[in-house]
């Protein structure tokens, strides 16, 4: 990953630009600085996204159009607040623009089609880094009344879409897109509580997603069909190891991902009980496709696809990363939770 960053000066520049935009938005004082940070970070991501292949360029184009529309709506709402026009309507406009930017339910259509053609690196950027500024705005909007109700309905429906859409999908990137749709809902609800809680959620989710994606990327697995190319002993045991990420993202208990779910529940049970119930029901549905990731990646070791004389246990960096990310923090966090 670091190697990729420093491969050329331009990509280094644009990754710095991405991070700089986020800081600009989070530390700025006016709404315009939020908008400007959003745009600067988006610019950086745009350059990092556009890779060599035609598919990547196409998905970058789609992403560009959608994001430009949403950020201009955002700008319009900011301007209308500043200028004093349509003051009653402008929060609706702002929420709509943020929903488009995040890919929440009525505007979720761009997410799978964009993400399924991107490179894995830009998948991480789109599903984690690009969420920060819109959710920062969400957590500071202090939504109330009908608007909050509207956003809640959108989030519930979006969680439903994220759970049901992933069923039967064979491409890992579109699966991860649906998983990112459903995790975005969790993040938004967490950010209603406070922004720091959202940052904790996002950082854990970021590391889990980063581990899964970087392992898939380094093994060049894009669809289920690519699993047939796994031939060497080491890559087989590595794929077995990275299959844990699937259940971890699903939030099964021994893994770290369960902490996310627990954290979400503890924070938002008192304010949004109905939302918690809906999200948990949908996470049972999404467990089906996470189980698919798990079983598809570990299928060689499960069914004994190959015969070889001896198998040395290969502790590659991917395997170590998987164990460190998935198993150890979950256990430790739970022991700490046991004190309270």
């Amino acid at each position: 990953m670091v190697f990729f960053m420093f491969r050329s000066y331009t990509s280094f520049l644009f990754s710095v630009l991405t991070v700089f935009g986020v800081f600009l938005a989070l530390e700025g004082e006016s709404m315009f600085s939020v908008w400007m940070g959003m745009e600067v970070s988006f610019l950086g991501v745009l350059f990092l996204m556009s890779g060599e292949t035609e598919e990547e360029v196409e998905s970058t184009m789609k992403y560009f159009i959608i994001q430009v529309i949403s950020s201009h709506l955002f700008l319009l709402s900011v301007l209308s607040i500043v200028g004093g026009w349509w003051v009653l309507e402008s929060p609706y406009l702002m929420v709509t623009s943020l929903l488009i930017k995040l890919g929440v339910f009525p505007f979720h259509f761009w997410v799978p089609s964009v993400v399924s053609q991107m490179s894995y690196f830009s998948l991480i950027l789109v599903s984690a880094v690009q969420k920060m500024i819109p959710i920062w705005v969400f957590s500071n909007l202090n939504l109330q009344g009908g608007l909050l109700w509207l956003v809640q309905v959108a989030l519930v429906l979006s969680a439903f879409v994220g759970a049901v859409g992933g069923l039967g999908v064979l491409h890992f990137r579109s699966l991860l897109a649906y998983s990112s749709i459903s995790h975005t809902c969790f993040m938004v609800v967490t950010s209603f509580h406070c922004f720091k809680a959202f940052l904790i959620y996002l950082s854990i989710y970021f590391f889990l997603n980063l581990g899964l994606v970087s392992s898939l990327w380094s093994m060049k697995i894009y669809t289920v069909g690519d699993l047939q190319k796994i031939s060497s002993i080491s890559s087989e045991s590595v794929s077995q190891a990275i299959s844990f990420y699937g259940l971890s993202l699903a939030g099964m208990p021994p893994f770290t991902g369960f902490f996310l779910k627990f954290f979400f529940l503890v924070l938002s049970w008192e304010k949004f009980p109905l939302l918690c119930v809906c999200f948990l029901v949908f996470s049972v549905i999404s467990l089906y496709y996470y189980f698919f990731i798990f079983s598809a990646l570990s299928v060689f070791s499960l069914f004994g696809g190959m015969n070889f004389r001896f198998k040395s246990f290969y502790w590659g960096w991917i395997f170590t990363l998987s164990v460190i990310f998935n198993i150890i923090p979950g256990f430790l966090l739970f022991l700490i939770m046991g004190i309270f």
Binding site: K261, F262, W269, V277, L280, V281, S283, L287, Y288, F291
Partner: peptide, 23 residues
């Protein structure tokens, strides 16, 4: 898959109740 879906699907409501009790 049956094992996972049945037991995990039934125990998520349990988690919710336990969080409620905890709170």
């Amino acid at each position: 898959m049956f094992l996972l879906m049945y037991t995990a699907g039934a125990s998520l409501p349990l988690l919710m109740c336990l969080v409620f009790v905890l709170l």
